[in-house]
Simulated scan of single mutants.
Amino acid sequence: MRIAVLGASGRVGRLLVDQALERGHQVVALVRTPDRVAVPASRQVVDVRQADVCSPQTFPGLDDVDAVVSAIGIGKDDGPGALVAGAGLLAAAHTRTVWLGALGSGPSERAGGLIYQAVMRMAVGAELAEKAEADQVARKGGATVFHAPDLKDGPLSVGRRLVPLADLRRPLLPPRISRATVAALMLDEAQTGDNGGEIVVPLS
């Protein structure tokens, strides 16, 4: 497959690029600053394209890819609306899309448990509303939306799985998952497209 990674220079984005190459896929790295994409010389060539979601007139076309996985977040230099703009651009591309959102936003507001939600309000705060709006735009475009719990460093979990949001049991303690595991599950979904238009929760 030919997979585009939006936000390929970020912590999850870099893992998506590496894991996609390891699986034998061709990768298109979509980044605002191309110089930040580091690809080992021993790997296949990665097609790096400059892509700023806040500049739709210069956003590259995606007609040549089979799927897009998005790991963009709200950066410190981003103004309001960046996530919604990104979701809209991918929805308009009519390409199989996997969108990384956050557990505790929108429909999953209480799904992580009371402690988790309190932490989310303190850590994310006003961004929750934009995350929820972007998720809605992505879903309307047919994307699979991942409501990932708190991300941590760590190895890939062999027991990784996706749970539909409606089937998630509310945990007592704040849930966590490694970025490597989330990246692997996003690529699994990009390959199959089994949950298009749905919200799913990655678990390990």
Results as ranks from 00 to 15, higher is better:
121 R>P: 00
110 R>K: 14
73 G>F: 05
81 G>C: 05
93 A>F: 07
129 A>K: 15
82 A>F: 00
115 I>G: 03
131 K>Y: 13
114 L>Q: 13
80 P>D: 13
118 A>M: 07
103 L>I: 09
82 A>M: 04
122 M>Q: 14
125 G>T: 04
115 I>S: 11
125 G>L: 06
79 G>R: 13
128 L>G: 05
88 G>E: 02
78 D>M: 02
137 V>C: 07
93 A>M: 08
129 A>S: 15
136 Q>A: 15
123 A>G: 07
100 L>E: 10
116 Y>F: 15
135 D>Q: 06
123 A>K: 09
75 G>L: 10
117 Q>H: 09
123 A>Y: 02
115 I>C: 05
130 E>R: 06
116 Y>L: 08
108 S>K: 05
86 G>I: 08
139 R>E: 14
90 L>D: 01
93 A>V: 04
110 R>F: 13
126 A>G: 01
94 H>T: 12
106 G>S: 10
92 A>P: 02
75 G>M: 06
89 L>V: 12
113 G>R: 10
80 P>W: 11
121 R>Q: 08
76 K>Q: 04
96 R>N: 02
92 A>G: 09
134 A>F: 11
128 L>N: 03
135 D>F: 03
119 V>I: 15
118 A>Y: 03
81 G>W: 02
80 P>F: 10
134 A>C: 11
134 A>L: 09
108 S>D: 06
85 A>L: 03
80 P>S: 14
74 I>C: 05
108 S>I: 05
84 V>K: 04
79 G>I: 02
116 Y>C: 09
109 E>G: 03
98 V>S: 07
104 G>Q: 02
105 S>A: 15
99 W>E: 04
126 A>W: 00
130 E>Q: 07
137 V>Y: 03
95 T>D: 02
107 P>F: 07
84 V>R: 08
109 E>L: 15
83 L>K: 03
77 D>F: 03
103 L>W: 11
122 M>L: 15
77 D>R: 11
88 G>F: 08
85 A>P: 02
74 I>P: 00
127 E>Q: 14
115 I>M: 13
102 A>M: 13
97 T>L: 10
77 D>G: 10
74 I>Q: 12
133 E>Y: 01
122 M>T: 15
122 M>F: 15
98 V>T: 07
136 Q>Y: 03
78 D>R: 01
104 G>T: 01
72 I>L: 04
100 L>M: 15
79 G>M: 03
89 L>F: 11
116 Y>Q: 04
130 E>V: 09
109 E>C: 08
120 M>H: 00
93 A>T: 06
114 L>H: 12
131 K>T: 11
90 L>C: 06
126 A>M: 02
129 A>P: 08
93 A>C: 06
92 A>I: 10
96 R>T: 06
75 G>I: 00
75 G>A: 14
99 W>P: 07
109 E>A: 15
134 A>T: 12
132 A>H: 03
113 G>P: 09
81 G>F: 05
